[in-house]
Amino acid sequence: MSSSHPTPQPWYKQFWPWFLIGLLLSSIAVSTSFAVLSIRSFDGMVQEDYYEHGKAINMVLAKQQQAADLNLGATLRIDPLTSDAVLDLTGDDRPERLVLKLIFPTEADRDHELRLEHVRDGRYLGQAPDNLRYRWYLQLQPDQETPTWRLVGEGRFPDEGEFALTPGRAADS
């Protein structure tokens, strides 16, 4: 009696080796694409010098306290068509020039710094960048090497309304 055994198919004609190879290749492709994505969109640390930044918080609070002691407050208007910045400063200190920092919350390369010139009676004028969009943090301080006070606020552009800058935390307008 002779028994006939079916001859097995070669490995490359079977399902399971190709299934396992497919899993391996798909995991390599996915991990490679994630690696490329993480390298191209590297954000770094939010604050590289976090220790120095933490020590500087007391100086910032002192500047804001000095602004409160001087009874300082300001309103800012930026014309959406001409980008003219008009700032009205109230209080006991009116320097000839002010610096207004427009700080974008998530991207430092979009930040802007404006110089505002004193015109009359606490009114300052300057030129803002064209086409301001979205939400910005606002910081106002005298144009000095070491400013003595700081006002802060928050604005959403484009808007024809006024934004308040106060000595305290950023306030919604």
Rank of each mutant, 00 (worst) to 15 (best):
17 P>R: 08
71 N>A: 14
68 A>M: 12
165 L>F: 13
124 Y>F: 13
159 D>N: 15
45 M>D: 09
107 E>P: 01
124 Y>K: 01
157 F>E: 07
116 L>I: 04
154 E>F: 07
112 H>I: 05
75 T>S: 14
105 P>W: 09
22 G>N: 08
73 G>E: 15
113 E>S: 15
162 E>N: 14
129 P>L: 08
3 S>P: 01
152 V>H: 06
60 V>R: 08
83 S>G: 05
152 V>P: 00
23 L>T: 08
56 A>W: 07
25 L>Q: 10
67 A>K: 04
11 W>P: 05
88 D>Q: 15
159 D>V: 03
162 E>A: 15
138 L>N: 00
160 E>G: 14
97 R>A: 12
41 S>E: 10
103 I>F: 03
6 P>I: 05
143 D>V: 06
160 E>K: 13
7 T>N: 08
4 S>N: 11
126 G>V: 03
154 E>W: 03
3 S>H: 09
169 R>W: 13
164 A>P: 00
140 L>S: 00
102 L>N: 01
82 T>K: 09
96 E>V: 06
46 V>C: 03
76 L>W: 06
50 Y>E: 03
146 T>K: 13
115 R>D: 09
157 F>K: 09
132 L>D: 00
104 F>E: 14
54 G>V: 07
21 I>T: 12
46 V>W: 00
67 A>C: 04
35 A>V: 00
13 K>M: 14
160 E>P: 00
52 E>R: 11
162 E>K: 15
96 E>S: 15
68 A>L: 13
161 G>K: 05
76 L>M: 10
123 R>T: 11
21 I>G: 12
156 R>A: 14
131 N>V: 08
109 D>F: 11
134 Y>F: 07
63 K>P: 01
17 P>C: 12
89 L>Q: 01
59 M>D: 15
131 N>Q: 12
13 K>Y: 11
79 D>I: 06
85 A>W: 02
139 Q>C: 04
96 E>A: 15
5 H>Y: 08
91 G>K: 09
155 G>E: 01
150 R>L: 15
33 S>R: 04
106 T>V: 11
169 R>Y: 13
80 P>K: 02
61 L>A: 12
122 G>F: 12
151 L>F: 06
110 R>Q: 12
73 G>D: 07
126 G>L: 04
26 S>M: 14
27 S>P: 02
108 A>K: 13
29 A>R: 00
160 E>M: 10
24 L>G: 02
103 I>Q: 15
161 G>I: 05
64 Q>F: 04
1 M>C: 06
123 R>H: 07
108 A>D: 12
30 V>W: 03
22 G>E: 04
148 T>G: 15
117 E>Q: 11
74 A>N: 02
96 E>K: 14
110 R>W: 08
140 L>H: 03
2 S>Y: 03
138 L>M: 14
120 R>I: 08
87 L>F: 07
129 P>M: 13
27 S>M: 11
105 P>R: 05
95 P>S: 10
43 D>H: 06
30 V>P: 00
98 L>D: 02
41 S>L: 08
86 V>R: 02
5 H>G: 04
152 V>S: 15
101 K>R: 15
29 A>N: 02
113 E>Y: 07
22 G>R: 01
49 D>I: 02
113 E>W: 06
96 E>F: 09
84 D>N: 11
74 A>I: 01
68 A>I: 02
11 W>I: 14
141 Q>L: 13
14 Q>E: 11
